[in-house]
Amino acid sequence: MYEKENTVREWKVYLFVFSFMIVCAVAFVIFEPKILFSQIVLRGFDAFISFVLLTNVLFFWRRSKRIAYVSGVLAVINLIMVISLV
């Protein structure tokens, strides 16, 4: 039972971090015309998101393979998007 509680807690943490990243991305899109972020700042934010997702893969690899796989897929998608925008 203890392992199931840890898995539920890990999923909650993962979903919270993922939701926070989505909110930050939306904030960038909404406020970008007013503040005029440079492209380097936006690419740095994308790189940070990829770094967090890859860290999730390493952290959750032994605990929950599903979280690791989802993080890995999202990291690859994000890296492809960053490379296509360069």
Rank of each mutant, 00 (worst) to 15 (best):
V13Y: 03
L58K: 14
M1E: 15
T55A: 15
Q39L: 15
A75Q: 05
F45A: 03
F60R: 00
M1N: 15
S38R: 10
F31S: 09
V57P: 01
R43T: 14
V70T: 03
V52E: 00
M1F: 12
V23Q: 10
Y69F: 14
S19L: 01
S38V: 13
F59K: 07
F60G: 00
L54P: 06
I40T: 13
V52W: 00
L42N: 04
I83R: 05
V73T: 09
V73W: 04
E5Q: 14
Q39C: 14
I22L: 10
V41G: 06
L42A: 04
F16A: 03
I49G: 01
F16P: 00
L36Y: 13
D46S: 08
V52T: 05
C24T: 13
I49N: 01
I67A: 02
F31E: 10
S71C: 06
S19Q: 01
Q39H: 13
P33Q: 04
I40R: 13
G44I: 13
V26L: 08
A68G: 03
V26R: 05
R9C: 08
A75C: 08
L53G: 00
F16V: 03
V13S: 02
V17N: 01
V86E: 11
A25G: 09
F28I: 02
R43A: 12
W61K: 10
A25M: 11
L85K: 13
F20S: 04
L53Y: 03
K34S: 14
I80K: 10
Y69D: 15
M1T: 14
V76G: 06
E5N: 07
L53E: 00
Y14A: 00
V26P: 03
E10W: 08
S38L: 12
F31M: 07
V52A: 04
N56I: 01
F37H: 01
Y69I: 15
V41R: 10
E10S: 12
F51E: 12
Q39F: 12
I83D: 10
L85F: 14
V13L: 06
Y14R: 03
E10G: 08
L54E: 06
V57K: 03
I22V: 10
S64L: 06
V70P: 02
V13T: 07
F59V: 11
T55Q: 13
